[in-house]
Amino acid sequence: MSLPLEICVFNTATAIAAAEAGADRIELCENYANGGTTPSYGYLKTTREKISIPVFPMIRPRGGDYFHRPEEIEIIAKDIALCKELGFEGVVFGLLNRDGSIDKENTARLVELAYPLDVTFHRAFDRCKDPLASLETIIACGCTRILTSGQHPKAPDGKELIRQLVEQADDRIIIMPGSGINSRNLKEMIDYTGAKEFHTSARVLRPSTTEYMNPLIPEDFSQDFTDETEIATLKKILSQ
């Protein structure tokens, strides 16, 4: 039995390619440069119509920090309701208080609103002040999983904490390593951390196919895509 592989994407074409390459689940985001924000309605609806594997949209109304004001919580709630209406299997969000603790009140309320959808608490977790205490708070809120790089920029550097989280979670919640996961380090991450799901973008840049660029305005029109060969390799490792 293969361990699940989630692929993070930033456009519909990449989502389709990732699904065809063997991804088990898609995290659907916009705005790579800002760490991911909520996809537009058209992006959500089109992707849902074209992909049959589970898709979890990112619900994050803006880039920047993870403390959200009441009006932003209202936006998140409405976007979760939209994702339920459109038939998605889960959503991804993460809320912190100003002091670095988990925003327990709003997280629990939004998890209840999202039900029966899965809820992944995203890498806001990697910015929290006390990860082991925060794990217990997130479990109490009813989230399904935590996406984490072990409070380091890349998950392989945070593998010690990831292993602690997996052990402490004790199957009460899924700990899903993400960021910097690739076919060169996946086997070690499986063996070392004991995690049972993994997340990556398998990201590559593809050159623009546009035939004209204004020479007075030099721009990089390269587009985010996914490496289908890398996904196939990751899937092979996860099935061993």
Rank of each mutant, 00 (worst) to 15 (best):
S2Y: 05
S2A: 13
L3N: 07
I7F: 09
I7K: 03
V9E: 04
A21E: 09
G22F: 13
I26K: 11
E27C: 02
G36N: 08
Y41A: 12
G42M: 08
R48Y: 11
I51R: 06
P54N: 04
G64Q: 09
F67R: 02
R69P: 00
E72S: 06
E72G: 05
E72A: 09
I76R: 04
G87S: 10
G87V: 10
F88C: 10
F88H: 10
V91Q: 07
F93E: 04
L95P: 05
I102D: 06
V111I: 13
V111D: 05
A114E: 08
F121E: 03
H122T: 00
A124V: 06
K129F: 04
K129T: 06
L135Q: 06
I138N: 04
G142I: 10
I146G: 02
S149V: 04
H152P: 00
K154G: 00
A155R: 07
K159V: 01
R163W: 02
I173D: 05
S179P: 00
S179D: 07
I181A: 08
S183C: 05
Y192G: 01
T193E: 01
G194E: 02
G194A: 04
A195G: 02
K196T: 09
E197I: 01
R206F: 07
R206I: 14
E211Q: 11
M213H: 11
N214S: 07
E219T: 13
F221L: 15
T229P: 00
I231H: 05
Q240E: 15
